[in-house]
Design a protein around this nucleic acid. Sequence first.
RNA 1: GCCGCGUUGGUCAAGGGGUUAAGACGCAUCCCUUUCACGGAUGAAUCACGGGUUCGAUUCCCGUACGCGGUACCA
Length: 511
Amino acid sequence: MEKKIRVRFAPSPTGGLHLGGVRTALYNYLFARQHQGDFILRIEDTDQSRYIPGAEDYIYETLKWCGLEPDESPLKSGPFGPYRQSERKKIYREYAEKLVQAGRAYYAFDTTEELENMRSKYRTPENPSPQYDYRSRENMRNALSLSAGETGRLMAANTPHVIRIKIPEKETVHLQDMIRGDVSFDTSLLDDKVLLKADGMPTYHLAVVVDDHLMQITHAFRGEEWLPSAPVHVLIWRYLFGEDQMPRWAHFPLILKPDGNGKLSKRDGARLGIPIFAMDWKDPATGETITGFRENGFLPQAFVNMLAVLGWNDGTEQELYSIQELIAKFSIERVHKAGAKFNYEKAKWFNHEWIKKLTVAELFPYVKKAFEEKSLPVSDDQQLLAVIGLVRDRCSLITDFYTQGKFLFETPKQWDLNAIQPKWNEQKKAFFRDYIVQSGSLAEWRADNLETAFKELAAEKNIKAGELQLPLRIMLVGEKTGPPVFEISASLGRGETIKRIQNLLDALGVP
RNA sequence: GCCGCGUUGGUCAAGGGGUUAAGACGCAUCCCUUUCACGGAUGAAUCACGGGUUCGAUUCCCGUACGCGGUACCA
């Protein structure tokens, strides 16, 4: 029987989740669902100095918003818990010691200063970052260079120490990446990475291997920034559990900043005025808020869709996918090798498409919330439903519903007078006075009736209807934009329409 | 510096020894609309460079350039 597919998303709770992080979660999720496997959320909080309050909750909320709920997580325990690495601390020491016993790792007592001394001593323009490796380790204070007695004495005295992996001198480590194929590394270029830190916490390198093994992870997918340290992980697998037990790897391409080059960072969001985090993230240290896609008016379906195709496609022309379609069609092998620049305009296009795709009823809760956030609570749900239908095609973001539809719920406070004054005259004033009366007696207040009445009256008075429509629009909405003017008038209702016409007539000083 | 990974229009990208090198976003023009959008049509714009291999390379190989990532007791 085949082993059950198990994948994990393993973020560090150090801040908001940006596009790349969510996409990694998404690809893991899609792969798990496609194979009826498990999707695990593991919190990698081994660096206590980088602990950020709220970051972990942010991860849960983001996954929830995106619909990527894990099968096992710190919140939803399973048979392989705990799922927070800080709570697994004691597990790692045991494995680190095993490596020491096997001669594949060793104790090292170097202080931060000693390490810095070594680096500055060997640092040259050609070698700006000297490594702790097979050459230099003999000159450092560790169990390999010290006598057994001295090491024993230091250990007995509880001297602060780390455990480092002993990287073999001349080997080639191969890795089969599901996206990149065979990737190989020369071990003589690798350094003796710290596995267990002085505070007893593991580094990522040890923790990822131990936990992937213990949690029976079958496929380990992560960002490309991990590729250079992958050979270290392969070696740890080999020494601890056997390479045949190792999960299959895939390293996802990075998401790059829209302009220039480099990995997308939170700075770019502020700099370019675009969201890069899934949801608003308030930095507890600075109090600064970095805006998110959700608050910018993105639908989760669109956000997920956009992310899925940023670095993957199924080879057809299809661009719009529901999560179900993604589960059916996604494949790791078709994920790109090269990084992709993020394009906010295209992201908005996806959202626009999803706004058109959803029903008015499905849109309703999002739009209602958007109005509430703008301090314009809507009491009449029916009316809001009607507005959604009226303006949806011209909205790219949920927040656009407010700008496009607010006219219905608030009387214009000011008018774009420049649009009408130049051509305004007595004749037109008279037209609107009469139109108030005429339309007021209409049997049915419907857009088509209004338009007919309006045009008939214009013809009667010998004025081009087109020249009167703009003034009417300004009266009703205040500005030159918006849905067809008679549609607006229809949803506004009789009383409000007349009131608004009268308002502007008054403002223009009609006797 | 060294190591790794990349490189098809401005961006996302399909393709993969012989093609008019798809499609989408954006842009431009036109149509629709007497508003602004939506929508529709059309258009401009691409295989990083140099060597091979081959009857033929965007596609395969090797270099070079460029970009990114890594080079921490961070993940």
